[in-house]
């Protein structure tokens, strides 16, 4: 067991973990934060995307011990005081989800993208989301939602 201490969604967390524990399972099973999904488990689909020190990463391909001392943000932390985050709102407005399985990862990847490029072109959105797969929507509305959120000028 290895002792880790990290900040998850603004809260300090300490835990003893087996070194082989993947970050996504630490979040889901140790902390009960099940908003982050596991889709492929092989670093492909992006369903498990969270932020590590503010940048998108695939939490199925990181060890929890690699996040020790760092800051993790999951989909649970985006809505504030009962208000959806501007990206979540834009996803709803633009019908950017059907089953919703890919959505937490899509939103976290999009939030990281908009932080790096606040005014992306459509192509930059498509490229910025290349690490996230959706089996339902065909991406059209997802891209529209991200452009909509960017245009609304709301802080992401």
């Amino acid at each position: 067991m290895t002792r880790i201490s990290l900040t998850v969604n603004g809260q300090r967390r300490e835990a003893d973990v087996e070194p082989r524990t993947l970050l996504v399972y630490f979040l889901r099973e140790h902390l009960g934060l099940t908003g982050t999904n596991v889709g492929c488990d092989t670093s492909t689909c992006g369903a498990c995307t969270v932020h590590l020190d503010g940048e998108s990463v695939k939490s199925c391909t990181l060890l929890a011990v690699q996040a020790d001392g760092r800051e993790v943000t999951t989909i649970e932390a985006l809505a504030r005081d009962g208000e959806l985050h501007p990206l979540q709102e834009a996803f709803r407005r633009n019908h950017a989800l059907q089953c919703g399985y890919c959505t937490p990862g899509m939103v976290m990847a999009a939030a990281s993208l908009l932080r790096e490029r606040p005014n992306p072109t459509e192509e930059e959105v498509r490229e910025g989301l290349e690490g996230n797969l959706c089996r339902c929507t065909g991406y059209q509305n997802i891209v529209k939602a991200v452009l909509d959120a960017a245009a609304s000028g709301a802080r992401v």
Partner: peptide, 9 residues
């Protein structure tokens, strides 16, 4: 290389 998430790590 890969995608943005891969490039962040």
């Amino acid at each position: 290389v890969g995608d943005p998430q891969v490039r962040h790590v």
